[in-house]
Amino acid sequence: MKRLQVNTTQNVKIDFELANIGHRMLAFFVDNIIKFAYVYLIVRFFNFAPLRDVAGDSWSIRALDILMFLPITFYSLYSEVLLNGQTIGKKLAKIKVINVDGFKPSFVDFTMRWFMRIVDFNFFILVFIYAYSLGLDQYLVLLWLMFLGGKLVGFFSVLTTKNNQRIGDLSANTVVIQLKDAAAFSHTIIEELAEEYVPKYASVIKLSDNDARIIKDTFHSARKTRDYKTLIKLRTKIEEVTGIKSKEESDIQFIDRVLKDYNFYTQNM
């Protein structure tokens, strides 16, 4: 399994597991099923004939057709922007788009990534449509091969590049990563963090999900029974593993802060 190592501004190294071709194909198929379902529903259940009659000329009718298909045309772009680097397909496949430096891509990055789908998936399809419109029926087999080949450009790009990137990823400086097990992650959450929450200890990302879960369980048990010796041992172990030195007034405050910071970084990286 390929991995990407990112060095944060706090000089802490984070390893991301890159999404493989299987994860990305699953997301691709799910998203395309959603697109086809939209087209089917539009064609099957909505009668646009009156609007076409009102539009009258062919240019207005074409403009109406374009308007109808805008939601699926920009589906990947607005989904990744609104869902923090994911589409519905990516959510189901548990993968996510991030910047190669480990941060959330900017709107420009998402836009570049979306625009380059023309090359990754649709360039030869556009050639196919243009050639077919010219009446080149005698080359129909070749045209269909071009149509199918256009869908494979991104596929082979993911297979052959160092960080499993398609051309859109290379252009936008993004990668697609595999997310941690959502079930395991949920056990590490103590409470929902406020939007304005500011973390203090960046090195908590040296902990694993299992570390955080053990810390949480031990912390809750020791605090409930007022087992201060265990809290001291727990604080010492955290400092040893992460290299953090407590800046809090008590061990309880420190461990609570560590768990919250861990949640913050694992939710936002």
Rank of each mutant, 00 (worst) to 15 (best):
K91S: 12
R223Y: 04
L142F: 14
R235I: 03
R24T: 11
T87G: 05
D217W: 13
Q10P: 00
K224I: 08
P199I: 05
K35Y: 04
Y78D: 01
F264G: 11
A172C: 14
K206R: 14
L92C: 06
P50K: 10
S157M: 14
K260I: 05
I42G: 10
S171H: 03
T188G: 10
N163H: 14
L234I: 11
A194M: 11
L18Y: 02
W59C: 11
D261L: 03
I88S: 06
K94A: 13
I129A: 09
I205Q: 01
K200D: 07
H187G: 13
I252K: 11
I238R: 02
A131K: 10
Q267C: 12
T9K: 12
F36W: 13
L140V: 15
M1H: 14
I232F: 15
R226E: 07
S186K: 14
A202I: 01
E80W: 00
S58L: 13
K104H: 08
T9N: 12
H23K: 11
H23L: 03
L140T: 15
F115D: 05
E17P: 01
F28E: 02
M146Q: 00
K237C: 02
N164R: 09
I215E: 02
F254T: 10
L134E: 12
D169V: 03
Q253E: 12
A19F: 02
D209G: 10
L26N: 09
G243R: 00
T236S: 15
S171R: 09
A222N: 03
L152K: 08
V39G: 13
V43R: 09
H220G: 08
I244A: 05
F69I: 14
T161Q: 03
F115M: 15
L259W: 09
V54Q: 04
W59Q: 14
I190P: 03
I205Y: 00
L92I: 15
I95G: 02
H220R: 08
E248A: 13
I214G: 03
F264I: 07
S246H: 04
N163G: 00
I167E: 00
I118Y: 12
V153L: 01
A182E: 14
L193P: 00
A55S: 04
Y201W: 06
L18N: 04
F128V: 13
G149S: 09
L207G: 15
R62P: 02
E195K: 08
R226I: 08
L143H: 11
A55G: 00
I88R: 11
I98T: 02
N163V: 06
T9E: 15
Y78Q: 08
L51N: 06
D120I: 04
G89C: 00
D251F: 05
F185T: 08
I34F: 02
I61K: 12
V204D: 13
S250Q: 05
L77I: 01
E17Y: 09
I177T: 00
V97D: 00
V198C: 09
G149E: 07
R257I: 13
K206C: 08
I88G: 01
M116S: 09
I125N: 03
F123C: 01
D209F: 07
P50I: 07
I98D: 00
F219H: 00
S250R: 05
F254Y: 13
L51I: 11
W114Q: 06
S79D: 02
S221F: 12
S60D: 04
F107S: 14
I167M: 10
S106E: 10
Y265L: 11
T230Q: 14
V54W: 04
I129K: 07
R223I: 15
